[in-house]
Nucleic acid binder design. Structure first.
Lengths: 209, 209
DNA sequence: GATTAAAAAGACCGATCGGTCGGTCTTATT
DNA sequence: AATAAGACCGACCGATCGGTCTTTTTAATC
């Protein structure tokens, strides 16, 4: 079976462009992402983009997809490596904080910036962001529900707890970017940890502090 | 004592422009705010802006000031009308939620959008946003501390609790803009309420639910 | 009523935006 | 070897950006 070298080359540069775009967009937003600056950052010509995407909107949608894959790879998958139950719930939060702490993206969080850009702009881009957020919130709820069913977590409203954890995780972004760095991470960690411990009959499964 | 009608006219249109700008910026961000669209929205000419502000940056700083005044008028001041203690802490959160629920601004929250735009862009605009955020967080901490000292709240880390309340309040914005509206408001309310009740020796001071 | 100054408007400028067009280079097919 | 197709580029387009310059309107002062 032969592979087409032209297509391989195309896919490679396509991926490289998307990776650069996620990093750029985490700083300047998905709308602040321009062909001109992306071309310079990725080391390609401006017009070359239109080989891969018909217009900016399609590029933006693909950039979201790339960012979502990164979120899964660096946060969701590692967390799912934890044993089901309260530790897996905690894992989702902890890996998210690690993602922020290690400054994987120069802008802190792609989705924070992108959602802010497009929350009032209907269209395919917003729809894709909505899908990503629904997926993340749905994962939180299902992991929490599983923990509750296994008896490791006492809650009658998994969606409320999911909202709390997401809120405490998401607030780290503006706090670290604008105010002090370590305190925000420390407080977010402490807040979720104490909350989970207060809801769990087996708090010793969670880290000391 | 005579007043100069020309200056009065200037101040009036200046205020009108700022008010329009806060609403526009709550949707498109402080950077997405352009002279052209602001001129159309405010019903003035583009070049007229430069009578009041030397450049866009100075306008942005003033827009932040106007938004901060609105935040104080509609959230801080009403909350400070509550008796000191746990009820005043709760008031800060409740009035904030009311602000979001009533859709005072078309974009939901000016500061959420503005901070997102400028958290990676050093300069006077970012400094002004930082000042506003510090002021808000400082207020939360001081009101919480006062409640703790009066014995209505049991906490040894007011800054942690302030972070929690701010996070649960701020998360409402992306959730309401992107996902469902009422559930986000309901959950944010429930989360802070249960948290304050769990920390208070006098939970009966707070609303039932 | 003439002069002066603030407010506001109109025409315009260089830069950058998203996007098009014609063409080159590379690689697979025949 | 000839042809076709995908990847990629430089030049360019109309629109909009922040901002300047000049002029007109409005209102106070003399």
């Amino acid at each position: 079976m032969m592979v087409d070298g032209r297509l391989v080359r195309g896919r490679r540069s396509r991926e490289a462009i998307l990776e650069t775009a996620v990093a750029l967009a985490s700083v300047d937003g998905l709308e602040g992402l321009t062909f001109g600056r992306l071309a310079v950052a990725a080391g390609v010509s401006k017009s070359g983009f239109f080989t891969h995407w018909p217009d900016k909107e399609h590029l933006q949608v693909d950039v979201i997809g790339r960012a979502a894959r990164q979120w899964v790879d660096l946060i969701v998958s590692p967390a799912l490596g934890e044993p089901a139950g309260v530790r897996r719930v905690w894992g989702l939060h902890e890996w998210r904080l690690r993602f922020y702490a290690e400054e994987v993206l120069p802008g802190g969080c792609f989705f924070h910036t992108a959602e802010c850009d497009f929350d009032d702009r209907p269209g395919p881009v917003r729809d894709r962001l909505l899908e990503a957020k629904r997926s993340w919130m749905g994962l939180l709820v299902s992991v929490i529900t599983a923990a509750a069913e296994s008896g490791e977590l006492t809650t009658d409203d998994p969606e409320l707890l999911a909202f709390e954890i997401d809120a405490l995780g998401g607030a780290v972004v503006p706090h670290t970017r604008l105010l002090d760095r370590e305190p925000a991470l420390r407080r977010s960690r402490a807040a979720v940890l104490q909350r989970l411990k207060s809801l769990s009959p087996v708090p010793e499964l969670l880290p000391e502090e």
